[in-house]
Design a binder for these strands. Sequence first.
DNA 1: GTGAAAATGAGGTGCGTACCTCAAAAATGC
DNA 2: GCATTTTTGAGGTACGCACCTCATTTTCAC
Lengths: 359, 359
Amino acid sequence: MRPTVNDIAREAGVSLATVDRVLNARPGVREKTIRAVNDAIQKLGYVRDLTAANLARSRNYRMAVVLPDTESQFVQTLADALTDAGSIAAAARMDLRLHRFPAEDAHALAALLTSLPGRGYSGVALMAPETPILRDAIRALRTKGLPVVALVSDLPNTGRDHFIGIDNRAAGRTAGVLMGRFLGPAPAQVLVLGQSLLARDMIERRRGFDEVVLRDFPQLDVLPSLETHGSGQTLRQVVAERLGNAPGVRGIYAMGDGHRALTQVLDDIGLSGKLVVICHELTPHVRQALEGGEITAVITQNLGHLARSTLRVLRAKADNLPLDAGQEQIRIEIVLRENLPASPDSALSTFAEPAVTAA
Amino acid sequence: MRPTVNDIAREAGVSLATVDRVLNARPGVREKTIRAVNDAIQKLGYVRDLTAANLARSRNYRMAVVLPDTESQFVQTLADALTDAGSIAAAARMDLRLHRFPAEDAHALAALLTSLPGRGYSGVALMAPETPILRDAIRALRTKGLPVVALVSDLPNTGRDHFIGIDNRAAGRTAGVLMGRFLGPAPAQVLVLGQSLLARDMIERRRGFDEVVLRDFPQLDVLPSLETHGSGQTLRQVVAERLGNAPGVRGIYAMGDGHRALTQVLDDIGLSGKLVVICHELTPHVRQALEGGEITAVITQNLGHLARSTLRVLRAKADNLPLDAGQEQIRIEIVLRENLPASPDSALSTFAEPAVTAA
DNA sequence: GTGAAAATGAGGTGCGTACCTCAAAAATGC
DNA sequence: GCATTTTTGAGGTACGCACCTCATTTTCAC
């Protein structure tokens, strides 16, 4: 049997109340007694039973997740992953609430954030572009004791407690190597697409990409980034035009979203499957395009892990506990057709066999 | 506030005892009453508080992890990951015990497994090659109500409850594409190494590799696999000899372990960094070789995830609960120098800031 | 309608911990 | 040595649920 607080008390020759005072860092205990208790804890290998502790505290964790109201498959998939993770974490006294804000409206976002502290929240996870007004809103939240976690795109100058997502510069570098190695030694031009050249993640990806290509693949000519502003229409136009004028293009690096429009325009001009196409985020459509050979490789992050990590980090921050950096690191995953993970739809929940009850 | 069993009882107009009978599937409740209770549960959105439930059950989970006593960095790293995960899970009433068995001794392994049921275990995770005697031992365990989970290498014919690890065939395919694309269109020979051509995982990797190369990269000539029997000595010999005789070799696929010996022999004969070298498992030495450009790409699995997944699956099986297939799927990761995750050593635990107590 | 069986209610205890109060003991200042 | 402060002990309640017993009510077969 695992030792309990009672065992500690007996071993240390003190009362339960004293053990409790030591364990919960309450005042009014002599140094010497504290040491005696800690020695007993050491000796017996006591580990506080978190389930019981949280129960006794009747601590609830209401967390806000704030996402833009973009309709992109990525944000939608992320929202789903968070909802999923939240419903499971409900059994552990977690109560996750999703909030959406108008994508381009920094003031609406700030207003939303400002309204949170009064509503019983003990943490906020946020995916949003960094603006001055957002910085202030986040500072205000933290002053009120609400930890703030940045999702997907970092907010380094806001004082956020933690960032959950991949290193976009490294992701760009990875795209760079893949592009270079897949295209081979022959000279070629490469097209780069991004919805906005001002967004932090786009800038970092481009920087990482260039870094590697310049260093290791001098035979490649990377053309200036094309902005799509998140519009499929624009994307189709600029890509068609550029590909018409630059017959030497053999690779496309799509840093942002709009993959549906991209595969469509490639198909229209008869280049589908003939270029090395590297993009980000394994959405359902990208998965399909990967299977069909329209997209060569995808740099992605596991949104399930990201969602679960978000919950763990929020909780740890709310409890002011340390977190396991290794577990919370979101890896940059490379997905090819050959290592495409089984689709979440086809991966039905496995249910335990009926018979055989455990001991 | 979240609804509790009492709320359910009130809502359904029954007593607490009846709610309890329904929740825990005890007999002696009319269909109609069961439905009334379930309706109330639905209506109030009740979620059983697992922490409280487990506390009340005073359920402890003592789990055995059985690994070969090989000194390979891989097994060692795996053992460490499991120990780590176990020490964290201790707070959730988990008690993980590692056992090692002599790598080539199926009888010793069977004896070890047979001794487990008497020792208060409620689950076993096992990494071992499949033998008839092992099949019997596993059957015996399951008859006694102990769930058995296969680690890293599957044991499909033993009736194990679950397999935790990557799909080795898909891993081989992934290695195949990388090899093909990295080598480019020029004809080339490829060397394949494995410690034993009888081990299930080696066979599957080779099969997947061949599948892709034959289909998509006809310019490649994949030489017959070389067996190293886990000996660095043997590996160095056979590789040196083969590379001497086959000057057209431009790629090496190392399916098994012995990467240290491989990089060494390549260095000796002056080919270090000049071949496309693809191997498995991101051990400390492989990481170093990747950084140094001696190894081109690594197919790996995240051992931290694998370890945590093992604990979750063991627990779910012990409780006869369904598990989240998506979360438990171990992905095939591709690691290049550019997306090498930060070393676990340098990834120090992040500690929460002292001030700011949560609401 | 009667008796037996099935279903339900009422109430209690315990899991391991947190947190509280009040009294008693020990240490401290002077 | 006394008064005062600090430290410690004893005991209780609560968290949400599991599991038990025993009495009572309802249902059903005949």
